[in-house]
Amino acid sequence: MTASDIIEKHRFLAQSNVYLPHIMVIEKIIDETPSVRTFHFNFKDEKLRDEFTFESGQFGEYSVFGVGEAPFCISSSPTRRDHLEFALQRVGKVTNALHRLGVGAEIGFRGPYGNGFPLDLLQGKNLVFVGGGIGLAPLRSLIWNVLDNRDKYGDIQIIYGARSPADLCFKYDLDAWGDDKTVDVITTVDRQESRVQSPVSRVEAGNSRLQSQESRVGAGDSRLQTADSRLLREGFVPQILGQVAPSAQNAIAIVCGPPIMIRFTFPVLEKLGFTPEQMITTLEKRMKCGIGKCGRCNIGNIYVCRDGPVFSYAQIKGFISSEY
């Protein structure tokens, strides 16, 4: 290769430089909980809006220029394309910076990365979604995807929990799914009493109605409520899962939540007769590059960013006890 070949190659790779983000614009912000926010965003370059495709379960690397990059799944469904969404909890440097941004602010985005949920495997099956906290974000992309193609799937059950009523995310979705007669939604909290008492996040006594926080941009109706029949249960997600005891017959369980919840959920599913192949999860690890180079997100020889983040329990069983 001569020097001019190199320059040519360099130009080519620079144009398709995988590390260069696209500029995105934040269009809307929804406060999900005191520490979780959903951002609606779109490509600044309008051409790319149509070209961009992704699958439920895939993630992106989001940057606040000058602060850094962090990975989050795309929480909207590929079946609803007028904008993209991601949701994040305020926990560190980048997430704090993202939470400080307002509508109209620019962020960097590269992706989509990772494998996404195996839709062809899910089709024709009964689906049991088990989610905890902000772990509902990747699931909701899939749930809306499935609901928008409702006839391709069997029964749908959603078991979702959070620490307290105030920590329940996507309450407007929970309401919408609750209204859908073809979906069974079970919502639970670790404790009924919210740890951080805030006037908009209390559970109304008597009817167990659940209110969303007032969202900054008002997600449609700003006082979305869960349907009457959806009793807010009390207990940890794995516990409630055991009580609800969904059938493993022709079913696939899709689990996402904090690692501790995932760890305790798999044994419950196994007890219910789910095989490791019938359990699917999406994992979270510290990531930097998102494309299998920087090294830190591995479980054994699997890179969560490159080979995941969606795995069957069968794939990660050997490592889950000691490295996850």
Binding site: Y19, S63, G66, G295, R296
Partner: peptide, 23 residues
């Protein structure tokens, strides 16, 4: 080959860097 990626910005100009990192 593990590396870290970090940003630096002074006023309105900045750069993204990568540097060696270690498991």
């Amino acid at each position: 080959y593990c590396f870290d990626i970090s940003d630096e910005m002074v006023k309105k100009q900045g750069a993204r860097f990568r540097c060696w990192d270690s498991c």
